[in-house]
Each structure stands twice: as structure tokens, then as C-alpha cells.
Amino acid sequence: MTNLKPLTIAVTGLNAIDSPGPGVAVARGLKEAKSFDANIIGLSYESLEPGIYLHDLFAKSYQIPYPTTGTETLLERIKYIHSVENIDVIIPNFDAELYSFMKLEKELNKLGIKLFLPEINQFEERQKINLPKFGKDYNIKVPHSKALYDAGEIYSLHDEFSYPLLVKGKYYDAYVAHTPQQATTFFHKISSKWGLPIIIQQFVKGNEYNVTGLGDGKGNMIAAVPMRKQYITDKGKAWGGITITDENIIELTRHFLKSTSWRGPFELELMKDPEGDYYLLEINPRMPAWIYLAVGVGQNIPEAIVNLALDQAVEPFESYQTSKMFIRYSWDMVLDIAEFQQISTFGEL
């Protein structure tokens, strides 16, 4: 038995599936925390999110309403869960839900629940559609990009772009197009799903690197672990990766945090071109699914988030083990329908 302070922490993103949410990895990090004893509550949207059934990690799971139903409904549900569980900290892990939690932060604080999230303006300025301005404002190289509202504009792109280029949705989806015809096809494909605008981004040849980390909201870097993907699934997700030593990436991350005063966890997607220049492709305002790699190499980011949320002093991590790999695997649980019945009928398990 430990003498550590018990804390109840609610975590979302329990969908450890082929395009996984980070919730299960975050929970593993919290379980290994050395500064508190975590009682972890799962918050799920769907009744088949694997984390719900991982009882060693999640003491209990509750279903919460989809972000589409609005903050009022979400708040009501969290109040109920809080009345049973007395939550100290919530760690949301989905892009699509972050806005709702940022919006509710004050209300949740009043209930005694703490969060450690980016501020709304930080969240907004990093949106894909705003990335060119972001790059300019903070002097970070980003691939040239442009928002299109009309597929007809694709044929006049040759002045600004060269093929191949990326055709991206406002929130999700990206395809490489080698011809205007392909770009047009992708334009229609993506816009029918995610609406307009469509973002055209110059394709940068090179190697992709990712870095996950944590900013304290005052411009300081608390954590940063760079990784190169070694195995990528057909959905573009890392199924294996290795930590690397690259001062340039750490410097770029430090610059990003210093200039934006980013608060909370993040993942930067970077491309290093043949000249050795780094381009920032995307900023994810949350931990990545591979966050346990950071925990495993010495930077327990989930633990640090909890402590920052609770206004505890957190010392920046100085180092991490380099050349450590992660390899993901899937695992079939066998369970009784009674568990599924419980979560799908009563919304808790």
C-alpha cells in the first residue's frame, strides 16, 4: 500500500481501436505516477470503447453525451458523475470534445474539478485553416497552404503550388493529389463529409517526426519527447516508433511554447525536408495515442498534467531515454454480455 495522496481522475478517449484515442495510454501513465495514487474513471461516448472493459486501469466508466449535444447536457452529466465519484481532474483527449471542455472550464472549477487545457484563442489559432498566419506570427516554417471554397479554384493553383499537394479537410482527412483532377476528386470527397473550406497544402518531401510535450501556459517547456514513426497503419497511425535525439526539434518545440505560451499537452507533426529544414504540418491540442512512450522514457506527461491542473509546482523534465521503441499490439478480451448490457442500459460500468 502506498501513502500517496489519492486522486480521482477522469479520462476520455477509451477507444483503443485501430485509430486509437490516447485514453488507455494516459491511464497507464497515471497508474505509474509517483506523486499521487490515481483512481481512474473512464468517460466514454460509445459502449464498445475497449477501455470501459479494462477494469485494472479504469475503476469505473461512465458514458457521456456526444459534443454535438452541447455543453449544457455534458455539464449535467458530469455533475452526476462528480456526485458519485468526486472527481479532482478531468483529462479530455479528443479534438472534437476539447472545445466543450474549454468552454466549461470555469463551471467545472466551481465544482472543484480541474482541467489543464489550451486557451480558446490558442486552440483556434492552431486550426489547420489558420496555420499560415500562425507560422507567420510565430516565425515557424509551415508548408504553404490555402483555403478553398470552390473546386474551380483548383485549376488556378499552379502559380502558388506545385504537385504533388495535400488536400485536407477542416478537421480530418488528408490526401496526396498528383494532378488537378485528383485534387478535384478529393475536394469533393472531403467536402461532402467535413464541409468547406478545403485546405490545399504544399506537399513537403522528407521524413516525418512527431513530438509530444507539455507547456505550462507561461511559455515554459515542461516536457518534450520526439519520436519517429517506424510502422504506420493504413490509417496513418503509428504502430511502432522510436525516440530520437534531435536538438533542432527540441529547440523548435521550445520556440513554439515560448511564443504561444501554450497551456496543456500537444503533439507537433513535423516534416524535415532534404535541406534539413523543419516544417510544422499540424498542431494537435492534446496527447497522442503513443503518449505511453513518453512515460516509458522518463517523461510522465499525464502525471505532470494532473499536477499542473492542481496548481502543484512541476519541474521541467530534463531528459528522456533515447532510441527506445514502442510497438503497439492488439489484444482480444473475452467478456460476458452482462458487462455490455450494464454499460449500454445504465450508462455506467
Partner: peptide, 13 residues
């Protein structure tokens, strides 16, 4: 009694 119905032949609930 809680209203959960399982069709074991199809696996649908």
C-alpha cells in the same frame, strides 16, 4: 427486467 433483450441467434441486442 431492465429492458435489455438479447437475441442469441444473431448476437443483436
Amino acid at each position: 427486467d431492465s429492458g435489455f433483450l438479447l437475441n442469441p441467434a444473431t448476437g443483436e441486442s
